[in-house]
Design a protein around this nucleic acid. Structure first.
Length: 517
RNA sequence: GCGCCGGUAGCUCAAUUGGCAGAGCAGGGGACUCUUAAUCCCAAGGUUGAAGGUUCGAUUCCUUCCCGGCGCACCA
């Protein structure tokens, strides 16, 4: 901002804080410091004090260690010549005790502090009469003034259950997404959720690194988009004066690296798809793809199984089951394997092979599938599959051996050339992973691309582009390869029991705020 | 894109049939040296998302628009 005309009208609270800022400067206190030597943190200091207390002889535990902490003021309880406050840092909260006779002139500065300010404190630990481990503050510094009031609720610890109750906190979902900084500052459980996301992604990297996969980076801006069926974002490069697409998948570049001999590669990065937004779709989302030379989709199924078991153990503290939105999901391997056509027959009760296109179309229409008249037979079958089978699979299930027409990058199934060696892992009614024995026959790949081009000409906007350079790469020779894609956001949703993708993305895509709202 | 619900003070929420827009917390002034949703006293705080309409009078009824949530459609 900075543009006066665009500044919102200042609230009384904002005005009051700006006045305090000036008062501080008038007293020679810099409201925005440069550094503070932090040697201790809230949780560590408390734990150390309690440990020392336990070790001391009865009645000797009075004098605690000196500590220096940095953090944000989240509660202020002034009583004239003494003041209690709570300091929050990344590890938790610790109570502070300021006394006028101990702090002298500096005590007066407290009146210019507000909830939300960042401060550094030095003092000694003690236990109050009420039994709370507290810093007896000897000196403190303002590190950064908070001009805008944080929507911090008041908190109470239930003495019986130890449960934290928050009163009139920050609940407006829209503002929590728009101002994630405030959401994080105020809601400890939101901070914890995103830390869990980070731990999950770290565990994935560790899992793959341990197995000799190398992490690589491939282009986000691509002259041709491919590797998935989706509509792209289009952009333009000025100097080259050319159209570029934001990638919809990493796939074709990663397999070029397999051609180059890297053998085991992975990428964890953003993909972009120009489609609707809802609780399982964000226009930019994080994708994991990994490719392993000399492996087929059977190997990848076992690897995915191992990875998931490890991740579930990470988040549950060793278990193999978790609850997602009220349903218990059991990740004890091996996961169920179910053939695509077998699933359709078994769960859909449809003998699709005996049905002509019109019959399939009627079946799809009766299930509420849109635009059935525009769909080819394989797409019709796939729609029926999604309606009748996928959404009903709660427990981890590998759907295997997809129709060739809807999988232009997968290798034909041995002994069943109308199918391909592809699997999707379904959990809680959603696709969690998609994988195949990668098609490495350049002649077959060229044919598949041509078939996609024909679909595109027939009006299928999601048909894949013909990528001649990719075929050229295959012509040099790609070893047999298994590849997997896993949507990280949805994986995190599952592992953290979140209903909306926006709750696992720090800054979800939203419409811009209105002027002056 | 369609349907339903919501948007009131910095935050969380009220407001009867259409009749002066309120409370708690935060913030301001005052009291208070072991409080913890600190307490007590005082004062203040609003273009009710926006624009129109109906009406003597609209937070309330109607229309359009903006933003969000949920569901459906699309998709991963």
């Amino acid at each position: 901002m900075g543009d006066e005309g665009r500044m919102e009208k200042k609230s009384a609270v904002l005005e009051a804080r700006l006045e305090k800022l000036q008062a501080l400067e008038a007293r020679g206190v810099a409201p925005f410091a440069y550094r503070y030597e932090v040697t201790d943190h809230a949780e560590g200091a408390r734990a150390a004090y309690e440990a020392a207390e336990g070790a001391a002889a009865p009645g000797e535990a009075g004098q605690g260690a000196r500590v220096r902490l940095g953090g944000r003021l989240v509660s202020l309880r002034a009583h004239g010549k003494s003041t209690f406050a709570d300091l929050a840092d990344r590890t938790g909260r610790l109570q502070l005790y300021f006394k006028a006779d101990r702090l002298g002139e500096a005590y007066g500065l407290l009146a210019l502090l507000d909830i939300g300010d960042w401060i550094g404190v030095e003092g000694t630990l003690f236990r109050t009469r009420m039994g709370e481990v507290t810093v007896q503050v000897d000196s403190f510094e303002l590190l950064a003034k908070s001009i805008r009031p944080l929507p911090l609720g008041k908190e109470e610890l239930d003495p019986e259950t130890g449960e934290r109750r928050v009163y009139s906190g920050f609940a407006d979902v829209e503002q929590r997404y728009r101002q994630r900084y405030a959401d994080l500052a105020v809601n400890a459980e939101v901070r914890e959720l995103f830390l869990r996301r980070t731990r999950i992604v770290s565990a994935i990297r560790r899992f793959l690194d341990e197995r000799d996969f190398v992490e690589v980076e491939t282009p986000v801006l691509q002259p041709l988009y491919g590797g998935a069926s989706a509509r792209p974002f289009v952009t333009h490069h000025n100097a080259l004066d050319m159209r570029l697409y934001m990638r919809i998948a990493d796939e074709l570049y990663l397999k070029r690296l397999i051609v180059g001999g890297l053998e085991r590669v992975y990428e964890i990065a953003k993909d972009f798809r120009n489609e609707g937004i809802d609780r399982t779709h964000n226009p930019e989302f994080t994708m994991l793809e990994f490719y392993q030379a000399f492996a087929d989709y059977g190997d990848m199924m076992r690897l995915v199984e191992e990875l998931l078991v490890e991740l579930v153990r990470t988040v549950t503290g060793g278990g193999t089951r978790l609850v997602y939105q009220g349903t218990e999901v059991d990740f004890t391997p091996p996961f169920r394997r179910l053939g695509y056509y077998e699933g359709l027959r078994e769960h859909g009760h449809l003998d699709f092979e005996a049905m002509d296109d019109a019959a399939l179309r009627d079946a799809a229409r009766s299930l509420g599938v849109a635009d059935v008249n525009d769909l080819s037979r394989p797409k019709l079958i796939d729609e029926l599959f999604k309606e009748l089978v996928e959404s009903h699979l709660q427990q981890p299930t590998f759907i295997v051996d997809y129709p060739r027409e809807i999988s232009p990058l997968a290798k034909p199934k041995r002994g069943a050339p109308t199918r391909v060696e592809r699997f999707e892992l379904m959990v809680a009614g959603r696709e969690l992973a998609n994988a195949f024995s990668e098609l490495n026959d350049p002649l077959d790949q060229r044919e598949r691309f041509l078939a996609q081009s024909r679909l595109r000409e027939a009006g299928d906007e999601e048909a894949q582009s013909y990528d001649e350079d990719y075929v050229r790469a295959l012509e040099y020779g790609m070893p047999p390869t298994g590849g997997v894609g896993i949507g990280i956001d949805r994986l995190v949703m599952l592992l953290t029991d979140q209903a909306s993708i926006r709750d696992v993305i720090l800054f979800p895509t939203l419409r811009p705020e209105q002027e002056g709202s």
